[in-house]
Amino acid sequence: MTSNFRIGDPLIRASKLRKEFGDFTAVNGIDFEVRKGESFGFLGPNGAGKSTTMRIIAATLTRTSGEITILDKDPEVHGPEIRAHLGVVPQQDNLDAALTVEDNLYIYGRYFGLSKKFIRNKIEELLEFAQLEEKRSVKVEALSGGMKRRLTIARALISEPEILMLDEPTTGLDPQARHILWDRLFRLKEQGVTLLITTHFMDEAEQLCDRLMVMDKGSIMAEDSPASLIKNFATKEVLEVRFGSGRNVELADTLRTHCDRIEVLPDRVLMYAESGEDLLHRLVSNGLQPLTSLVRRSSLEDVFLRLTGRTLVD
């Protein structure tokens, strides 16, 4: 395989991609394209079909129907040729717990047939990248969750992959560990590595992704940049009001007359408006005094709610 891909060239092309497990349709005929150098995200709740799509791209799961090419190759015909250029970070770390940090990187490099000399040099770079220099001789079983996650990402980078695939990269990490990871991923993007990320965290999607595909129940609900999605599917601001249990539903029809769209959640009502403050003043002047109120900017969570009628984290 020769390096004939430039920034902006499509690396992944899927058309009517479908995957069924018995009677269950995990991926329901989706079309998408991922270009070199971009950071592409699959956003959706658990069971949306994100991980299944990722496994098909990773050439470890066969599709039921439809077409897909990765680096211009069919994963069912050229699995090893495609996997040679992917860095895969699975949802659950699958490191060798009995081996040290350094050994884990070493053996993984060998799976790509890389020379021992190259791997040794690369390990130094990756230990620094993952901030694990002090832990190089420590067994994986003794590492914290965040360290294991960083090691799994470092391991995926040993072969200098064209596409780095991250399945829920920061699930289970504390806020500080998440921010360190985001920083590391941003650096990779700056180096021209194509990132493919699945997440159900909207802030992660907004931070990391140039383009997002919102998925639910195996289908694509929308696809665009985070900013455009928010612009197209939500208003500029959201007013969150609480009137107390029971009253939220009771007042829904009245509240609806004050703005274009509302969403009634079990504990609060979301009211979509260009100016949350103005809307709140209107409510109060009409005698609707909420127990609590909050004005915030619209987010991808609101986009998802609009598209599916459900929240991302059920």
């Binding site: 040729e81 250029h85 890389l114 040099n121 620094e128 072969s159 200098e160 064209e162 180096q191």
Partner: peptide, 21 residues
Amino acid sequence: TLKSEMVRRGSLHLINVPRIK
């Protein structure tokens, strides 16, 4: 900036798939 960063060559230039097979 990471001080030990190697010049990235990319997997397309690094990996010999027939050899791995």
